[in-house]
């Protein structure tokens, strides 16, 4: 098990208490699972994602990830419309384990209220959350 100090937690993204990350890219936001989440889940074997064009509010369940042992829901860090989903995960869901912040991203969305991103946890606040 990775110690908290061993986790990869980039500075330039925001985090949720439910272990999603959100990265601002121009006017859209990319969303994925944190290194902590993928480490806790273990080998991911399936990722269910929404369709492009679907809209969700902040905190809504928008999909789920399955490890060999468990099924876990994933939640919207901010509300918005899905503008892209990571098609690669259909055939290679293990990308979420291997590169949770790059090739293992989940969806890209157009935020309804861009200010919701500012209210998410920064790295320091997420670390406090993890240390519980």
């Amino acid at each position: 098990m990775k110690e908290i100090s061993e986790l990869n937690l980039p500075e330039d993204i925001r985090y949720t208490k439910t272990h999603e990350w959100a990265k601002k890219i121009g006017k859209t936001i990319k969303v994925g699972l944190t290194d902590y989440a993928q480490n806790q889940l273990g080998d991911i074997v399936f990722v269910e994602l929404p369709k492009i064009g679907e809209s969700f509010s902040k905190g809504d369940e928008f999909g789920n990830v399955e490890s060999v042992k468990a099924v876990s829901e994933i939640y919207m860090p901010v509300g918005g419309e899905v503008v892209a989903v990571n098609q690669e995960l259909e055939s290679t869901p293990e990308l979420v384990n291997q590169n949770p912040y790059s090739e293992g991203w989940l969806i890209e969305l157009k935020p309804t209220h861009p200010a919701e991103w500012d209210a998410l946890l920064d790295k320091a606040a997420y670390l406090v959350e993890l240390k519980g």
Binding site: G42, D43, V45, S67, V68, K69, N97
Partner: peptide, 12 residues
């Protein structure tokens, strides 16, 4: 132990 760094899939 639930799994080691190799992961459940490789272990299985």
């Amino acid at each position: 132990p639930l799994w080691y760094p190799s992961g459940i899939k490789k272990e299985h």
